[in-house]
Amino acid sequence: MTTGRCLCGDITFTVNTKLTDASVCHCGQCRKQSGHLWASAVAPLAEVEIEGPVHWYEASGRAKRGFCPRCGSFLFWKAHDEDTIGIALGALHEPTGITLERHIFTADKGDYYEITDGLPQR
């Protein structure tokens, strides 16, 4: 079981299974919403319990992003046609036991940093 919350604590969540596919997203939308890049891992939606006033932003015709309306923490990413949910690694209580696996949308990364950790890039 893994738990987490937003910055102000209005939203809490519990993941009742192992989080998988830990990645860092460098796409323009994640960079705009987070202010840099977004690290997340994935769980089946049915295994995640969320409490609190999550606001969902329809980021595209493909997915929505969940955040706290009080403190602005960007917590979740949910594709409309999938039964999984991406959860922000920074919102998890430690220790997480999670290791990053890859970087995604690296062609869209900002010009102000380099990716030098040796993880696979897509």
Rank of each mutant, 00 (worst) to 15 (best):
A43M: 07
P44L: 08
W38Y: 13
G52P: 00
V48W: 04
C6S: 10
L19M: 15
Q121Y: 04
P69Y: 00
F67W: 03
D83C: 07
T99C: 07
A63L: 10
E114W: 09
T99I: 12
T12I: 13
C71F: 04
A43K: 01
R70S: 13
G86Y: 05
F76W: 06
L92Y: 08
L7C: 05
E49R: 14
W38N: 02
L37F: 15
A22Y: 01
T116E: 11
L7P: 01
L100Y: 14
S40F: 13
L19G: 03
E47S: 11
G110F: 03
K32W: 02
E47M: 10
Y113A: 11
T20K: 11
C25D: 06
T12R: 14
W77A: 07
H80T: 11
N16R: 11
C30Q: 00
Y112C: 12
Y113L: 09
S40E: 06
F76A: 06
S73P: 08
C25P: 07
C71R: 02
D111A: 12
D10S: 15
H80Y: 15
C25M: 04
V42I: 14
R122Q: 14
G110P: 09
L89Q: 04
A22M: 08
C6V: 09
A91N: 06
V48G: 02
R102I: 05
G9C: 05
G52S: 04
G97V: 13
E58R: 14
K64D: 00
G52K: 03
M1G: 13
L92H: 07
K78Y: 03
R65H: 00
S40M: 08
C30H: 00
R122N: 15
G86E: 14
N16W: 02
E101V: 08
G72F: 01
F76L: 13
Q29P: 07
R102A: 09
Q33V: 08
D111R: 14
I50M: 08
A22D: 02
T12Y: 04
G4M: 05
W77E: 06
K18H: 13
L100H: 13
I85A: 05
K32Y: 02
H55E: 13
I50G: 04
D117G: 09
